[in-house]
């Protein structure tokens, strides 16, 4: 059985640079009021590129327990 992964954010650490938004291949993310927002969670393909490129560790994929 494949492990289920969820996209999680920590707006407190987000500095609103927009890197994750720009490089998300499925337009899942947005910056609102200078903070990260998961706008279209259903589009997410769990590629994890946002996590790899977030300079502030404010977004990541978490494995479901």
């Amino acid at each position: 059985m494949a492990v289920k992964k969820n996209l999680v954010t920590n707006p407190k650490w987000c500095k609103g640079c927009g890197i994750c938004v720009a490089f998300c291949p499925k337009d899942v993310l947005a910056i609102k009021k200078e903070k990260i927002v998961i706008e279209n969670p259903d589009n997410c393909i769990k590629c994890g590129l946002c996590e790899l490129r977030c300079p502030d560790y404010a977004i990541w994929l978490e494995e479901e327990e």
Partner: peptide
């Protein structure tokens, strides 16, 4: 700073 590559 916001967007600094060092964090990555």
């Amino acid at each position: 700073c916001p967007g600094c590559g060092h964090g990555i």
